[in-house]
Design a protein around this nucleic acid. Structure first.
Lengths: 393, 393
DNA sequence: GGTAGATAGTCCGAGTCGTGAACTAAAGTG
DNA sequence: CACTTTAGTTCACGACTCGGACTATCTACC
């Protein structure tokens, strides 16, 4: 039912089959040409030709033949780690981060600069981020990793390379992609932090659903604000204006107090970090977890209450989006031990579902977004190797 | 970023280009081959060949050359109404319906049988629906319309041709598609009523967004229950288990009463038809609209209250899904005059949005789902004419 | 009214790419 | 050491689209 908009031509056919073969190699580890042919439905001869191209492009490596059961031993094909690399950047309220991953998605460089970016000039922060990016790029070069592009995780709404608004940073209409492109010479893409964290979790978090990698889920990423990333069929769901997934501003208390966004009774207002800390009468997240571990009543109640509100929001998410699972990330992952019981109970109460939905806890912690950003770049190369080669012949 | 799963071959290239050309003809009314070539990016010679195939397949018609400004007059191409037709069926609480549309989407047969299907045997109702389908098929045949397939709108969850559950009918695990296939010889697809109503509204409702047809929206279809259809990029959003869009069970009152679904505080429990009628102290929807028109206080309050609850649910929908518009259908379309003010106010209050979102009212009324069902069939033919031809050579 | 210019549509050779069968390569089996 | 099995390459063939040449049919203008 997809509306076709571009003519199918021979070049497109080839590009599509290159992606098919490369994707198969990426997914199923070391494989022979013959097995790729069977899995993809292409003939052996076609696969041979496509693999030749991918090897000469440096995206695939050939290892020594290894004996199998019977017959001629197969030469194994693997992703060439040095074929292309991705630079992931993250700009957040209290830190900047950079990560380089090779074509297999393995981290090859990671650096975090902690500093509160809220009351600084935008230009200063941008300059710092460019510096961080340059250092990362230099490291990639020295490791022989050719960067294909960069992707920046932004705590707000980004459209066409521009940060439209990032409330927690106090930013609006910052042409960030152009600035970083200027400073590094790389193609730069911007994406919401919550969405990238969700992708990072999908690609590197190791979650499964019925034996296959999890491809339909909602990722809750609470740091200072509460964000949400919706992944459908392995891709981020963005809505009509790239604003989808704003879990933090789902209504959980129709008669509730005014939220910073202008609305009333939003989840973030009722269960955000600020609210939890205030109710638990502690100042930092570290103190909160300590208090919870010590069994402090006020702290436990505050967290459980947040869990209940989260459950209300997630009930609506479950009925509206029908995801296969929900992944708790960021601060909610840290608080999971004292939170999930209340959340699960609240979900059962509000949806009436016999069996509770799958509530998973993130394993990546606060690195999910940068990893997702770097991963986005290399995934794009794998998804369309022809386009990548056209750019650097 | 789409994961490719099938090899691209010459036949697929041709199939894709056939769809491209046919889609262009369908979208832009009468067009010349030359204009199709420009719009699609194909060459004139390719378009000529593709059009020849489509004409001999009976999907496209050629009308007499009409003079243009300068040069040789163009022969106009249009969809051939008799090329293929779709049979839409609908099974609902208090009626069965059938509609036949030709390839252009124009209704060519429409029949509704009013009868309460709640306390009847499942087999009886299925037999009635088969009878309705047969009569419709006979009418199509007598009009020279070859039916490509059938699509059934079901008030519940349908997966792989089976009605998994339809609470308002009291159905569970009914193999409806096979039964109708048996009775009519047609390929049969099942789909949720709310989703089809949304599609019908998109294709035939005439809504626009920034000059183009509306392709990202949420359709609210309230009859006895409250349903929702989410359309993203022109396609229905189904979630991981085909259960997405259940707007009726979004939580709008966390401390609210128990709902029939087992949850608490669901929209349907707070603003469903039963609730509104009870509060307005009337027995039927007809009486309710009369009371509203007469300015009856209790009726107006009941409707406004439902509108407020609807606004809470839609606030969550807006923040989670970021649609370009919301379309009110079914009973809510009828009640729109006394409902939308409260709903819009509630949305503004809960989302804090400066400008209220686009709240549109359906023009198709209760025919939306059958039209959507019949339209689904012909749209599929247009989206993949090669597959259609392969079935009937 | 005849010719130039413009636009529509067809035809055909060239180029690209996947297919399929034949062929070479390299192991294990009896 | 022949036979079987599996891996990978080669090459003629066919199915496409492309692009330019060619024909058809109109308007505009002299």
């Amino acid at each position: 039912m997809t509306v076709r908009t571009e003519p199918s031509q021979h070049a497109g056919m080839r590009a599509s089959n290159l992606a098919l073969v490369l994707g198969e190699v990426a997914r199923t580890g070391p494989v022979s040409r013959a097995r790729v042919a069977v899995h993809t439905g292409l003939t052996k001869s076609s696969v041979s030709g496509l693999v030749t191209d991918l090897i000469s492009a440096g995206l695939i490596g050939e290892s020594a033949p290894a004996a199998t059961e019977r017959g001629r031993p197969a030469t194994a094909l693997t992703l060439a780690p040095g074929g292309a690399a991705g630079l992931g950047l993250e700009i957040n309220v209290d830190y900047l981060a950079a990560m380089v991953t090779d074509l297999t998605g393995a981290p090859r460089y990671h650096h975090v600069v902690s500093r509160d970016n809220r009351d600084r000039e935008v230009d200063e922060v941008v300059a710092d981020l460019i510096e961080v990016a340059r250092t990362a790029a230099a490291s990639a070069t020295s490791q022989g990793l050719p960067l294909a592009a960069a992707c920046v995780a932004v705590p707000g709404l980004a459209v066409d390379g521009i940060v439209v608004r990032a409330p927690n940073l106090g930013w609006a209409h910052v042409d960030l992609a152009a600035a970083i492109h200027e400073g590094t010479g790389l193609e730069v893409d911007l994406e919401n932090e919550a969405n990238l964290a969700a992708l990072g979790e999908m690609w590197f978090g190791g979650h499964e659903h019925e034996g296959a990698p999890l491809r339909d889920f909602v990722h809750v990423s609470g740091e200072i604000g509460i964000g949400g990333g919706i992944v459908v069929g392995g891709e981020v769901f963005r809505g009509a204006h790239a604003g989808a997934g704003e879990l933090g501003h789902v209504v959980v208390a129709p008669d509730g107090p005014r939220c910073g966004c202008g609305g009333h009774g939003c989840l973030e207002r009722m269960a955000g970090q600020q609210e939890i800390l205030a109710r638990a009468q502690v100042a930092t997240m570290a103190e909160l977890t300590q208090a919870c571990e010590a069994g402090d009543r006020a702290a436990l109640d505050a967290v459980a209450d947040a869990g209940r509100h989260l459950g209300v929001a997630l009930s609506s998410v479950l009925t509206l989006l029908d995801p296969a699972a929900i992944v708790l990330g960021g601060a909610f992952a840290t608080l999971a031990p004292w939170l999930t019981t209340a959340t699960a109970a609240s979900i059962s109460h509000h949806t009436g579902a016999a069996e509770p939905p799958r509530l998973l806890v993130s394993g990546l912690g606060s690195d999910a977004a940068v990893r997702g950003a770097a991963g986005t770049v290399v995934r794009r190369v794998i998804a369309d190797p022809a386009a990548h080669l056209a750019r650097r012949p």
